[in-house]
Deep mutational scan, measured.
Amino acid sequence: MTSCHIAEEHIQKVAIFGGTHGNELTGVFLVKHWLENGAEIQRTGLEVKPFITNPRAVKKCTRYIDCDLNRIFDLENLGKKMSEDLPYEVRRAQEINHLFGPKDSEDSYDIIFDLHNTTSNMGCTLILEDSRNNFLIQMFHYIKTSLAPLPCYVYLIEHPSLKYATTRSIAKYPVGIEVGPQPQGVLRADILDQMRKMIKHALDFIHHFNEGKEFPPCAIEVYKIIEKVDYPRDENGEIAAIIHPNLQDQDWKPLHPGDPMFLTLDGKTIPLGGDCTVYPVFVNEAAYYEKKEAFAKTTKLTLNAKSIRCCLH
């Protein structure tokens, strides 16, 4: 018999989150649709729960009410004593943790798909938090293969000092899905179709896995975050240069030392320094102006996964 890495157990509980950011409308629209008619997301033997994560922000069509829901799922915020004085999103995070967690427990949901849009030209993107997770690498390989020839990129946010504390991190297997470009507060049919297909293929993978299909060893190309880059700023902290036209919409493309990065209003080009080629992502993302992030630098690498098969009882 072929030796293989056996994944822990079959997958039982899956959640699909929309509206973690209330103005990213593809996930909101799909989740609302699936709450009314969820036939397309159901798979035999699998509990799939669509869920609106930040209903107040969705109602106002804004990213958040008090603070970013997708950055506060750490033990400090989840452990705060519940009171009306807490920011709305912290209270909501505790409610979500109660419903789908608790985080880092045996009772937490197996998989959470968190649906997002970006204003950046990132196409279909899967966000991975753990480079050693054979199950998710296999799932992402399946999704990428199923979507081809449509490109699907994998963004690895594993980093020693950049801690995200994402909404989906309460699950055993957290999956971020990011599709763009799409303006905030807008629905685009092409973007919706791409996100819908990503979810379909992900659920198909889980179904095949649960039925005992063995997935042979595989490898995927990923883009691992190195650092986030702020806009150049003046002495008052105001933005002093904008994304250069040569960099705009060039997510995932190589940016070499000396290539144009920013452009000042008086026409001066600010190039990339250093001696390493990087791959920019979230270029000129609207939501990241407040976070002082013009783009993120990534490096390209390959992740390998062992063969996996479900432990059938």
Rank of each mutant, 00 (worst) to 15 (best):
T26F: 01
P50E: 00
H5E: 07
K59E: 15
I52G: 00
D66L: 02
A202I: 02
N70G: 08
P87D: 15
A202P: 00
K163E: 10
T125G: 06
L265A: 14
Y223G: 03
I308Q: 04
Q94N: 12
Q42S: 13
L136S: 03
F209I: 05
K200Q: 08
Q94D: 11
P174E: 08
K297P: 03
G19E: 01
G123W: 03
V58Q: 11
D230H: 13
H5D: 11
Y223P: 00
A294V: 02
C67F: 11
V31A: 11
H21P: 00
R309K: 10
L46V: 10
E235I: 15
Y109H: 13
K13V: 04
Y109K: 01
Q184G: 10
N304F: 10
P87M: 11
G258C: 13
L192W: 06
K60Y: 14
K81R: 06
S83F: 07
K292L: 10
N70T: 11
F262V: 00
K81D: 14
P245V: 01
K49A: 07
R132M: 12
E9P: 15
Y279H: 08
H208L: 13
D104I: 07
F29W: 14
F113C: 03
G19Y: 03
P254Q: 06
K32E: 08
Y164E: 12
H244L: 00
I199W: 00
N37S: 11
D275I: 06
Y279R: 01
L263Q: 11
T62P: 05
N134H: 11
P232Q: 03
E235K: 12
T62M: 08
K291D: 11
R168H: 10
M122C: 12
F215N: 02
A294R: 00
G45H: 10
A39M: 09
G101W: 05
N70S: 06
E36L: 15
D234S: 07
D259Y: 05
D204V: 02
H201Q: 05
G176S: 11
L303C: 06
S161K: 11
L192Q: 06
A7Y: 09
K32C: 05
F29H: 15
L272Q: 09
T26A: 09
D249M: 01
C124D: 01
K253C: 08
V229H: 04
C124V: 10
T277K: 15
A241W: 00
P254K: 05
